[in-house]
Design a protein around this nucleic acid. Structure first.
Lengths: 188, 188
DNA sequence: GTCTATAAGTGGATAGAC
DNA sequence: GTCTATCCACTTATAGAC
């Protein structure tokens, strides 16, 4: 770790996300973020106008990635399986911590208007893997497919003695939930 | 202990839970609770020693109900279906708001030591419907069965355009996930 | 049981020097 | 870009009157 100055903005984002996940958004003060970074509060305000702006910048990346996936899928109506695969990849590889933060701090997301935004995108994603006119049980299974993929980031179901499911297992179960098997269907 | 000290204590609990669900735990001040109740902050402190005590009293009821279910099930190793039914009844009938509060305010639960407590009970419940030595996919399906039942209380998956599943559908899907079908499965 | 008044502290945010 | 110093709204919690 040499003196890498110039990337302070990204360092703030990284440390803030760390603390938000550890302690929650409300309990994390700008003083703590500044301390862990080795700067003062005032320095933070040079890079971000408000505390809320830090969160916005964090979620914007996730939001953009979801938009990209939605756009990609919009042109390929039959790519249900691949949509799930790519969603799983997003959650596992780059946005795991952000997803965890979002899920664990819903009241803050709501107040910042981010719950609605992300909720809409999730709803669109849901519609891609399950038609509106499917029966309720099929719709619920499709929703659970998405839950299976983000369960590792869910606080209630990946804590204590219960470990998060391995990636490949999550994907396998998600596929069987969202892609109803046909009698000669392709297996994974 | 027994005996009636007026219903103010219960009114505080009710209003506090209301506001905690609306705004989140951290954003809800004792002043707001007092105002909505038509009393002053100081009156609150007559009934509860701290803000945290209010939460403890709220979660204690849920905790006791889960203990009761666990005890009941402990004596009936084969009652997997009935366990799920009773869990669903708890979530739907009496503890829906508390469950929502708990799920939406994980950082607060963690800080109050309640996340661990509830997590342990959930883990025990999980073990009741799925043996430890089952394969990972079966375990994940069992976990999703529980998720299906509390999805109505989950902020990420019951918002905006996506309505919570009807409870009978949730139970149906939960049963098919946690209780592997034998030949000729029964519908509804 | 409920009130008024206040203590004691923390938070986010700003101004202006360097 | 980062600092020191400060402001002020608001919080939990307590003391003591009625």
């Amino acid at each position: 770790m040499a003196g890498r100055r110039g990337d302070t903005r990204e360092r703030i984002q990284r440390v803030a996300l760390e603390l938000f996940v550890e302690q929650g958004y409300e309990k994390t003060s700008l003083r703590e973020i500044a301390e862990r970074l080795g700067v003062t509060k005032a320095a933070l305000y040079y890079h971000f106008r408000t505390k809320e702006d830090i969160v916005h910048s964090l979620v914007a990346d996730l939001s953009a990635a979801l938009d990209e996936l939605l756009e990609w899928a919009g042109e390929r109506p039959r790519a249900r399986e691949e949509v799930l695969r790519r969603f799983a990849a997003l959650v596992d590889q780059r946005f795991g911590p952000v997803m965890e933060f979002v899920q664990q701090n819903m009241p803050a997301m709501r107040e910042l208007g981010l719950k609605h935004t992300l909720g809409e995108k999730l709803a669109e994603l849901f519609q891609l893997i399950c038609a509106d006119d499917e029966d309720p049980a099929t719709q619920l299974r499709a929703r659970l497919a998405l839950v299976a993929l983000i369960l590792g980031a869910n606080p209630m179901f990946s804590s204590g003695r219960v470990a998060p499911p391995p990636r490949d297992v999550a994907l396998e179960v998600a596929l069987e939930l969202a892609v109803p098997r046909r009698s000669g269907g392709s297996a994974t």
